[in-house]
Amino acid sequence: MKTPFLRSPYAGLLLLALVLALMPFLVRNDFHYDLLTKICLTATVAVGLNLLVGYAGQVSLGHAAFYAGGAYASAILTSQYQITPLPAMLIAAAGVGVIAWLVGRPILHLKGHYLSMATLGLGVIAAIVLNNEDQLTGGPDGIGLPPLSLLGHELSVFGEYPFAGLTLTGVELWYLLAAAVLLLAVLLALNIIDSPLGRALRALHGSEIAAQVAGVDTARFKLRVFVISAVYASVAGSLYGHYSGFITPGIASFEHSIELITIVVLGGMASTFGVIIGAVILVLIPQFLTDFQELEMVVFGAILMAVMIFLPRGLLPTLLSRFQRGAR
């Protein structure tokens, strides 16, 4: 705690890398890898969304639309236009970024609940379009995606890959890929937070008017971070699509948007590592609650309320401050 390095968020990045690297020694079967991969991809979306919600203080209740946008664009480009997955993913991300820029310009002028309403509306419209345009999207029953391929090498969840003397299964490779993506996402996020953009955002969160008076072009910064968070979601969505091999409009639903924002708030707004813990919890909770069967919703609702009431700043920030107080 004394040296500046340990204090910096990059120490957290190292710790995260360590934890991710240790995971393969703890898992027992493919199902665990499946959960870990899901956690990494979900956490990637949350890290991006946190830039918008946690740092810039702008609520989005429609972020699942960008996630679904990436996944569906990948699905359509690969299956109907025969574009290979990697370029398709990049085109999808660029497309989602442009859309976010276009819709972000008008709606980011809105404040508070009106912004929530507008983002919610956009999310719902996206879900309806995906549901209705069944020629393109497969409609409510969903659409399949081919396995991911990187530079001509196919990465199927079900394949086996000899590598430097040992054989890795597709599931293991997918986890490594998802973990790498998460690390990259965190690294990028930490850089953004440390940049002039990040400082402007924090000023904005404190008081937008004060930031404006101080000469910060708030509209531009908000728009930029909105686009960045949308691209995060799009990339994670594309990857999830290739990973699972099949997607339905459910991933664009209002419920999914709520899940994403819940991860951010639960883990701790403006805490990059907090939201990762949020993702861990939200992905694992349904697996733990299977024993409750019919009471699953009651328990989940109660947990949500309790955490938010007793740890209003989110899990990690609250716990960290308690540890620090305890250490003193």
Binding site: G112, I261, T262, V265, L266, L295, G301, M305, M308, I309
Partner: peptide, 28 residues
């Protein structure tokens, strides 16, 4: 009432939690 210092988003999540809770009770 107990979440006095909570911000807008936190309150939204609390009410969403409450709605899931109530719905779950009704279902059960």
């Amino acid at each position: 009432a107990p979440a006095k210092k909570a911000n807008v988003v936190t309150l939204i999540i609390i009410t969403i939690g409450a709605s899931i809770f109530l719905r779950g009770l009704a279902q059960f």
